[in-house]
Structures are given as structure tokens and as C-alpha cells.
Simulated assay, not measured.
Amino acid sequence: MQKEIKHTADYLKLIRSKGIYSFTSEDLLLNVPKSLINIRKDLDRLRAKDEISTIRKGFYTIIPIEYQNVGGIPIEFFIDHLMIYISKPYYVGLFSAAMFHGAAHQQPQAFFVVANAPKPRNILYNDFLLSFTERRIIPTIGIEKMKTDTGYFNVSGKELTFLDLIYFENQMGGYNRIITVLQELSEGIKISKMKEALKNDFPISTIQRAGFISENILENSKLAGVFKSKLQNSQYKTVLLKPAGQKEGEFNADWKVIVNIQISSDL
């Protein structure tokens, strides 16, 4: 225990000087020489002065003066610490990952995190939704480390983001919401990295849809070729382009896809 620490505010000043913006109840109990009841009183006072924010039970963030006008620090500043705290493998993905890769026209209305099942509850943070999407087997290939003022966080690379957006297209609002992002991502995708990303646990149907979109919507034959190679030794069945859509449409024999939705890009 640090000798200079007498109150919760002292501990927060110390960790802030080290570039740490988040803390837990356990941290306080270990470092602040007060009872849990008195620590909670300290937290109430700090919260009333907008100096801290409660993210979920037992997990808090410091709100420095420079962030008080916007209600708190960016989520990427504390997401890694939060996911370690709740013991969940994760990565920032989908529209949020696309934004960090410069492939989103505007900031998403939510901050999207992919975690292994069962997913944590969504969190409302400063009127901004921290949205969790679950995978039974979370991908381990194609995840990058991105630096922030507080350290690093996990984010899906362009290739994994591309696949995830197709896999989760319904949750993301449908193809016409994701197609422009897919187009922008595809322009920076590296074929070698896409081959690696495909080693993750994706259904064959996702690869069929990715191939069809790459060839026929994005007109990216090199990218389509990666998906075609992946399917070469697979016995794949006919699938709907949009799984939740109607079961009628033009049949694409190359990818065994029933085109049951019209997709248009803004680009």
C-alpha cells in the first residue's frame, strides 16, 4: 500500500499519473486504507462531481478535466481492462473496427465488441451503446493490437472485419447498410491476410456469400479467388444470400447462392 494514499482520490491521482484511466473495487480495497462502506462514500462524492463514471458493477473510469464536457473517456481507453476484468476474450469489431481502419463514413451509433459466448450485457455509456456480439468459437487469427493513450486494445483486422460483417449482416442492419463499408475495406485487404483469416471458424455459407459479393457486387476478382480456393475441397450446398430473406431469387451457380435481395452501394 502506498504511504501517501489516504483517500480514494489519492489512489486515482496516482494511477492517473501512470496513464491509467480505469479501476476496480478490488483495486481500491487493496490500495485505499478504508472500509468498503467509506470507499463507496468516496465514490459517490467523486461521481457527483463528474470525476468518475461507473461502467458496470465494480468497474469504474476516471473522467479527466479534458473529457468532462463529453461525459467520459473514449471506450477504447478502457475496453481492454474491462474485458480482462470480466475474463472474456474479445476484439473490437464490425462497424467499430471498420471505423478504426478508416472504412466508415461516420461514427457508428454503437461501439461493437465481439466476445465469446455467453456475451456480456450491453452497456449504455454516455448515451452511447457498448454493444456485445457473441461467437461460440471466437476468432483468434486476424486480430490486431491498436495503441491508445492508455495502452492497447484488440481490434479485428480489415480481413476479419470483412468476414464478420457478412456473418453478422442481419444484426448490422442488412447488406445495404454494410456494403459500402465492405467496399472500402476490400480496397485495403491483403490476400495473404484474408487466407489466414479464413482459418477461423466461419460457416461455409459465409464464405459463399463473401465470394458472391466480392465477385458480383464489389467486382474484386482477386478477393473472390481467395474464397473460391477455400471452397474447392468443400461439399457446399445452396444458400440464400440473405438468410433471413425470402426463399426465391436468381440462382448463381458459381457460388450456389440464391440472390434474394438487391444490394446497392453508395460508392
Rank of each mutant, 00 (worst) to 15 (best):
M1Y: 14
T8D: 02
T8K: 05
D10K: 14
L12K: 15
L12G: 10
K18Q: 14
G19S: 00
I20A: 06
I20F: 06
I20P: 05
S22N: 14
F23L: 03
T24M: 12
T24I: 13
S25N: 14
L29H: 09
L30P: 03
V32M: 11
K34A: 13
S35E: 15
D42I: 08
L46S: 02
R47F: 10
A48V: 01
K49C: 05
K49Y: 08
E51M: 15
I52V: 14
S53W: 14
T54G: 05
K57I: 11
K57Q: 09
G58C: 07
F59C: 12
T61M: 14
E66C: 00
Y67N: 14
F77R: 08
F78W: 14
F78C: 07
F78T: 08
H81Q: 09
I84D: 04
Y85C: 01
I86F: 03
S87P: 00
Y90K: 00
F95R: 00
S96I: 03
A98Y: 01
M99L: 11
H101Q: 06
P108E: 01
Q109C: 00
F111E: 09
N116L: 02
A117N: 13
P118E: 07
N122L: 04
I123G: 03
Y125W: 09
D127N: 13
L130C: 07
F132K: 04
R135K: 14
P139D: 07
P139R: 05
T140Q: 06
G142Q: 08
I143R: 03
I143W: 03
K145Y: 06
T148Y: 10
F153G: 06
G157H: 06
L160S: 04
T161W: 07
D164E: 13
L165M: 12
I166S: 01
G174H: 00
R177K: 11
I191S: 03
I191V: 12
I191H: 03
S192C: 05
M194S: 09
E196Q: 10
E196M: 10
A197V: 08
L198I: 12
N200C: 06
D201P: 07
F202W: 15
S205H: 03
T206L: 05
Q208A: 08
R209H: 04
A210M: 05
S214M: 05
A224I: 06
G225K: 12
V226K: 06
V226I: 13
F227Q: 00
K228D: 08
K230A: 13
K230S: 10
N233K: 15
N233R: 15
S234F: 14
S234P: 02
Y236C: 07
L240M: 09
P243H: 08
A244D: 15
G249T: 04
N252A: 05
A253L: 15
D254N: 15
V259R: 06
I261P: 01
Q262A: 01
I263L: 07
